[in-house]
């Protein structure tokens, strides 16, 4: 069996409000903290959905679209940069598991 890329894995996830172009992010990240004082920038590798990425200059960026609401970043970030919540059923993204 071929080992899958993360993007292929995420392609299997069903998201709510997937068709909506405007969604309200349920997690807010103060990337100024990530990019100034954080010694590890760990969200860029511990997030199972790769919502946190690092660019060529080493700067952390966050996108909520692929979030599967696992909660990992809320615990992993010990710098106070992650303000975590669940998505709003109407205007948020979030997951609907087919198997769970």
């Amino acid at each position: 069996m071929n080992l899958m890329k993360l993007s292929e894995r995420l392609g299997l996830v069903s998201y709510r409000n997937q068709a909506k172009s405007e969604i309200k992010p349920h997690i807010e990240v103060d990337t100024d903290i990530c990019n100034s004082t954080c010694p590890h920038k760990c969200t860029t590798y511990v997030c199972p959905a790769n919502c946190y990425t690092m660019d060529e200059d080493g700067k952390v960026h966050f996108q909520v679209e692929d979030c599967i609401e696992c909660g990992t970043c809320m615990y992993a970030c010990d710098q106070g940069a992650v303000d975590w919540n669940y998505p709003d059923p109407e205007v948020g993204r979030g997951v609907t598991w087919n198997f769970g």
């Binding site: 080992l3 996830v13 598991w97």
Partner: peptide, 22 residues
């Protein structure tokens, strides 16, 4: 998944969902 014994065990299947939870 890449471990040789696991490869033998899961051979031929199709991944239908990927999920995570703390």
């Amino acid at each position: 998944k890449g471990h040789p014994v696991i490869q033998d065990t899961i051979k031929g299947g199709e991944v239908v969902e990927y999920s995570a939870h703390v």
